[in-house]
Simulated assay, not measured.
Amino acid sequence: MLDAIIWFFQNIGLAFYNLAYAVTHPGLWLDWSNNEAIMRVVYYGGSIEFFFVVFTAFLVVSAIGFWRNSFMWGCVRVLEGFANTVGRFAAWAGLLMVLQQIVIVFLQRVFVRPDIAFGFGIPLQMDISWWSEELKLYNALVVCLCATYTFVQGSHVRVDLVYSAVKYRTKKMIDMIGSLIFMMPAAVLMWMYGWYFMWRHLITPKPSASDTLDRLLMKSRAVRWNVETIGFSPNGFNGYFLFKVLLVLFTAMVFLHAIAFFYRSYLEWKEGPESEGKYLDRDTLGAGEEAYEGTH
Rank of each mutant, 00 (worst) to 15 (best):
D214F: 05
S233K: 14
S208L: 12
K244N: 13
A222Q: 03
W225Q: 00
T229N: 08
F232T: 04
L217V: 04
A222N: 03
N235W: 09
F237K: 07
R215L: 14
F241K: 04
K206G: 15
E228Y: 12
S233Q: 15
S210I: 15
V227F: 11
T229Q: 09
G236P: 00
T229P: 01
R221V: 00
S210H: 13
T212R: 12
L217Q: 07
W225V: 00
L242G: 10
K244F: 12
F232V: 02
R221P: 00
F232G: 06
N235I: 06
S210Q: 15
G239A: 07
K219H: 08
G231E: 08
E228H: 11
I230P: 02
G239E: 07
L213D: 10
F232Q: 05
A209Q: 15
P207H: 03
D214S: 07
S233I: 11
I230G: 06
L217P: 07
Y240P: 01
E228L: 15
M218D: 03
F237Q: 06
F232L: 05
T212L: 09
T212Y: 11
P234N: 05
V223Q: 03
V227E: 07
S233R: 14
D211I: 15
V223Y: 01
E228C: 09
K219A: 08
P207V: 03
W225N: 00
D214Y: 04
W225A: 01
S233W: 13
G231W: 13
L242T: 09
F243G: 04
L213G: 10
T229K: 12
R224D: 06
Y240N: 11
A209K: 11
P234W: 02
N226F: 09
F232P: 01
L242S: 10
L217C: 07
P207F: 06
P234Q: 05
T212F: 10
L217K: 04
L217A: 05
N235P: 00
F237C: 04
L216G: 03
L242D: 08
R221H: 01
R215H: 15
A209E: 14
Y240I: 11
R215C: 12
L213S: 10
I230R: 10
F243I: 10
F241I: 07
L217F: 07
V223K: 01
G231Q: 09
K219N: 10
S220G: 02
T212C: 10
A222Y: 04
P234I: 03
P234K: 08
F241T: 04
N226C: 04
F241D: 03
P207Q: 03
L216D: 03
K219S: 09
S208C: 08
V227W: 11
V223D: 01
A209G: 13
D211Y: 10
N238P: 01
K206A: 15
G231H: 09
N226E: 05
K219P: 05
G236H: 01
